[in-house]
Structures are given as C-alpha cells and as structure tokens.
Nucleic acid binder design. Structure first.
Lengths: 161, 161
DNA sequence: TATTGTTATACTCTATAACTATA
DNA sequence: TATAGTTATAGAGTATAACAATA
C-alpha cells in the first residue's frame, strides 16, 4: 500500500481500489455485499410477477403441504409479525393465498396457497432459480456445496435460552 | 413429507420444520438469513461505540491511507450518496472523521479519520471481529477459506455495461 | 397469565429527483 | 454537458407497544 493515494476521480470501473482496505477482507462485509447483489438480481427477476424474494418465500411455503401459521413464517423468515401480515394481505388480495383458521387454536391463521397461487409460484420460482444460478455461476463448482453448507450453518446459529 | 402436517402451535424452538420447504434449500435465502444474523451480531457488538456495521466500514476506510471520496465509499459499500452523507455527518459530528477538499477537484470530499477516529476504529474493530469470529465458529474450519472465496466472488459480480 | 394476529406509531433505510458548485 | 455532494421528499422496511380474541 503506497503512502498517499493519488485520489483519482473514481475511475469508470468503480471504487475497486477500496478492496485493499480491511473492510475488503471482512467476511461480514462480504456476506452483506453478496446478499445485496443476490437480492437485487432475484427481485429484478421477480418484478414481472409482482413478487419479491420475501413474498415468493411466503408463497412457496404456503404452496407446500406444511400449512404454516403467520407466526411460523415470521420466525423462519426472520421478519416481524407485521411484515408477514402485509405480505399475506398482498398475496391474499391477488387471490394467491387464503387464511384458514386453525381448527385446534382459533387464534392461528394458516396460510395456504390457492391453485392459482401454486401456478404462479411454479413460474416465479423457475425465474428466481435461473437468476440465482446465474449469480452462482461465478462460484467455482467445487466450492458450491461447501458454500451451501457453510451458509446453512451461519443461518442457524445456536439458540440463546 | 407427510400429507397433512399436524399444525403444532409453534414449538418453543421456533419454526424449524419449515426448513423442509423449498425455501430452506434456496441459496439466496440462506445468504439473506446468514446476513441477518451476522449484521445483528455485529451491530450488537458495536452498539457501545455508537457504531453499526456500515459506519464502522466508513470509519475503517477513512482510517486507512486510501483517502476515499464519498462517491467511492458509496460505490464500494453499495449505499447511495445520501446514506454516505448521513454516516459521514454523524462521524464528523463526533470528531472521528473530517472532510478534506480534494486539491485536484474541488467538488470532491475526501473522508479522513482523525487520530481519535483511528483509536475508536481500532477498539471497535476488535469488538466486531470478535463477534464475527464467534458466528464463524459454527462453520467447519476446513470450509472457511472456500466460504470466503465464494463470498468474494458473489460480492463482485461481472459488470454490465 | 400468555400467545396470535392486528392496529398504530415512530424510526430507519432506500430511492428519486432537483439544486449547487465545480469540471 | 456531466459529475460530486447536498437537499428534499416520498416510499419501503423495521421495531415497539397496545389491543382483541383466544388459550
């Protein structure tokens, strides 16, 4: 690292020289930046469907046979109850999911996809997967399953209580 | 997967059964959830310093000898110019960075850490690194450098123009 | 008393465009 | 004309507490 950088007026490429800073080697930062591009790419691919990464996740789980409550969706997706409510409201308005009262506990809403919702999910999922694969193509194939395993570990930190 | 899940009222552990959905296998989702815990942990560690992951990154680069402009910080950290302005305002208020006009182009502000700013950075960095290491301890050591390399690849996608 | 879902509110973050001063 | 930084504003996301219904 030279003592005094010439302060070029930000070359067309961008600010790549800043990778030389400590921040460039910080795994938390790499994670944040990778997530930024991932979300951007997936959301762009989902825009034609009126979906985003989050709403697709809700729709996907509603389209499975897991019959999730809103609370479970909030816990799993790391969103608060209000976010889930807004997303479910939106999906319900478009006729893609319904709220079913749980027979065992009438406080609970089970979120279930409609036939149309499942159809939309299948289409949108294909589009999101394609976008994801395109991004992942920059990762060496030999690194991919380890990346997946490591991310899964980071995504399930040990519980506190 | 059974046909009809019993809809248990969200066991104390959480909603782990939802990992069985397609979402649980989606790398984009794993990335987002891993980033969520990473940011949470780092921000908690930095709270005593009045910093967050983002402001620490700005302070770190300002404390290096790279002499970044606000524009370069925005490009590198994937934030817009306004976010950088707010962060620099905040750091400047506390006397940790100053804005220096660039001699070659008077439109440009170079963000430089003060002596006190460098001292605070060193302390806060240690705390953030400790928090990061704690999270990374859940990743198999043999996976770590590949994770790092893969994240770096994801964090530098090929340019469009 | 505790929990689910909802409402309400405030705060942060993000995106956009317009303005200035420089180039 | 184009760019760096700022201002202004609106929109999206987040966090919190309070509430009704239910357990």
């Amino acid at each position: 690292m030279t003592h005094l950088q010439p302060t070029v007026p930000s070359p067309p490429g961008g600010a790549d020289r800043l990778w030389a800073s400590v921040v460039g080697g910080d795994v938390s930062f790499l994670l944040a930046r990778a997530n930024f591009f991932s979300i951007s790419k997936v959301n762009a691919a989902l825009a034609p469907f009126g979906l985003k990464a989050r709403s697709l996740s809700v729709l996907a789980i509603a389209a499975s046979e897991l019959r999730p409550s809103q609370r479970e969706l909030a816990d799993f997706l790391c969103l608060d109850a209000r976010q889930i409510m807004l997303i479910v409201d939106d999906l319900e308005c478009r006729g893609w999911v319904t709220r079913e009262p749980a027979p065992a506990d009438r406080r609970i809403n089970i979120v279930v996809a409609t036939t149309e919702g499942r159809r939309v999910h299948d289409e949108a999922r294909a589009s999101a997967t394609a976008a994801g694969n395109e991004l992942m193509s920059t990762v060496a194939a030999s690194d991919f399953d380890r990346l997946s395993r490591a991310l899964r570990a980071l995504a399930t930190p040990p519980r506190e209580p």
